[in-house]
């Protein structure tokens, strides 16, 4: 299994460095969009505006949204692309089984995605003057967000297997993801609290805002709930993917496009 992970990592790395314009383009566009929004907000509010830790919270939300989008494109977009180029069926001819191949592929590209996202974050911080804290404990809520993101990505990947063309859907879905990542659900009160724990990734994103933007310590009870949420979405995502694989095989539409 380690060999498979390394092979997937090598494949991702080669494609990344062989076509650096794509990677650099991704960083520039993602950063410029945020900077454009930031400048617009400052223009509307006037020169006396002080964002305080609210800007930091928005930076965390936006960066997480970018990360989740990358993950979604990697899995669902990747499946659609490979069905188009013809390599998808070869992945299903692996004795490892397709779900394991795709999980390994996802983890292998994560290292690269995290490096790209860190670059975006640092550029945004430099441009906006945002000051975020980076305590080691941030890895824990980040893990819950990643689990949820992969769960959703596998659900979208399942749609890609069955419907093939999910480009439009992915385009619309990114706005839902922006809501999930950027809305400060940790400030919700009353019955909305329950919704917060049920929505994918929002609890982890809230904890990350607490840690990085507000300088608070990690709340273990809240982290446990966020972890449960992440594991739940990841498991459901994989189960749906397995179901989609079986369904595509039954309907004879695995490699078609």
């Amino acid at each position: 299994m380690l060999e498979l992970f390394l092979a997937e990592f090598r494949r991702s790395w080669i494609q990344f460095i062989r076509y650096p314009v794509e990677a650099i383009g991704g960083i520039v566009i993602t950063t410029s969009i945020f900077y454009g929004l930031f400048l617009s907000a400052r223009y509307i509010a006037g020169p006396s505006l002080q964002f305080g830790d609210r800007l930091d919270a928005i930076v965390v939300g936006y960066t997480l949204w970018s990360l989740v989008l990358f993950i979604m494109t990697d899995i669902a977009g990747g499946l659609q692309y490979e069905a188009q180029t013809g390599t998808l069926e070869q992945l299903f001819l692996s004795p490892f089984g397709a779900p394991l191949v795709f999980v390994m592929r996802a983890f292998a590209s994560l290292v690269l995605r995290l490096a790209v996202i860190l670059s975006i974050l640092l550029i945004i911080m430099a441009l906006t003057g945002s000051r975020l804290a980076f305590p080691p404990t941030l890895l824990l809520p980040l893990l819950t967000v990643l689990l949820g993101a992969y769960g959703l990505a596998f659900m979208m990947g399942s749609l890609a297997l069955l419907l093939k063309r999910v480009q439009q859907l992915l385009g619309i879905f990114q706005f839902a993801l922006l809501f999930l990542m950027a809305t400060p659900t940790e400030t919700w009160a009353g019955s909305l609290q329950v919704v917060r724990w049920l929505l994918p990734m929002t609890a982890g994103a809230g904890l990350l805002r607490d840690l990085m933007a507000r300088g608070e310590a990690l709340n273990l009870a809240q982290f446990s709930l966020a972890l449960l949420n992440g594991i739940g979405y990841f498991t459901v995502g994989l189960l749906i993917f397995r179901f989609a694989e079986r369904s595509a095989k039954r309907r004879g539409m695995l490699g078609g496009y």
Binding site: R11, Q15, T85, T87, L93
Partner: peptide, 17 residues
């Protein structure tokens, strides 16, 4: 994989198998 070389394709698919 069209973006990989022959030796990279062979190595990747070998491990996949």
């Amino acid at each position: 994989y069209w973006r990989l070389t022959p030796e990279e394709n062979l190595e990747y698919f070998g491990v996949l198998k």
